[in-house]
Design a protein around this nucleic acid. Sequence first.
DNA 1: CTCCTTACCAAACAAGTGTTTGTTTGGTAC
DNA 2: GTACCAAACAAACACTTGTTTGGTAAGGAG
Lengths: 180, 180
Amino acid sequence: MTAMSRAKLIAVSARLFAKGGFEATSMRDIAGRSGMLAGSMYYHFPSKNDLIAAVYEAGVAEIGAAVDEALDKVRGPWPRLEAGCVAHLEALLADSAHAAVMTADLSRLEKRLKRRLVTLRDGYEKRFVELVAALPLPAATDRSLWRLQLFGALNWTPTWYRPGGKKPADIARAMVAALR
Amino acid sequence: MTAMSRAKLIAVSARLFAKGGFEATSMRDIAGRSGMLAGSMYYHFPSKNDLIAAVYEAGVAEIGAAVDEALDKVRGPWPRLEAGCVAHLEALLADSAHAAVMTADLSRLEKRLKRRLVTLRDGYEKRFVELVAALPLPAATDRSLWRLQLFGALNWTPTWYRPGGKKPADIARAMVAALR
DNA sequence: CTCCTTACCAAACAAGTGTTTGTTTGGTAC
DNA sequence: GTACCAAACAAACACTTGTTTGGTAAGGAG
């Protein structure tokens, strides 16, 4: 079935992209771990860029769904922000997940592809813009910068996080609390 | 003179590494912008990894000196942390500087090289460990996580910062203030 | 004037890149 | 049983990568 191979390629790609970045991961790497040869992937995806886009889209969909589900259960501005951040960080640090590609560096991708991915990412981050807008923060607060600060701290965690220490959810909660 | 070409290669490499990462920047890129051919660089550096190490070392030295100088002028735990963060962020966002390589991703470098760079980086960050240790924070605060949160927010800024908006120093001050 | 070092060029190397091509396989529909 | 199609293989494409090699102009030392 087409769908099965396609899904497998996306899953394998997500894992490799998250670990090594887009450029350092070759089509042969992905193909090998998916049980096929590099050329065969071009039956499923017309180019590497299209594969990257598909993986990113899957990642955004996954983390977006996780955050939305978490938000549905909670009421009140601060608890909602906290729940969103917990879901966000848990998705980022779950090694088997697609979502980790979201912290990948987009700067050296082709302009068209980059625009597409940035649009996807912005659509996801809109949730957090609204969550921050609902907070009762001091009037002088630059909410845009405040959100970037929170997001930066969360998105930076993959660079230092090691399984076995504090749990992702506890990290996220502590970070929200520190900014409160 | 050896020293001149060497310094030029390091400066050019720093700029390109900061913009495109280590892997995406080729020896031919660097050589071309330095007025020589790729092979000629091997007179100055035995390998690309050695060049990377030299650039990183220069970056750490530069940002370390900037932070130390800023700290010398200020007294009191909070003002000192603020001054350190301002110097840190200004060095990161100054496009001509070497220091921006410090936010580069080290994960896919060779293990030996990575260890060397991590050691350099830890030596630099020690300053901030001490700055945070001196703060009068609530007893329950996890200072290690608190510092990682601050550093993450600062180090993430290069991904969204655009010249023309808030000045780096103001961003750094706002981030310290938000965590206070 | 000769010798030697410095600093570089020009050209090639093997390995790896994304991608294209022609062909083969297994299965399903008429 | 003949057609067709999905899905893959095998091999090559042109190109880029870090690195190596042999040669060479410039300049100072003896």
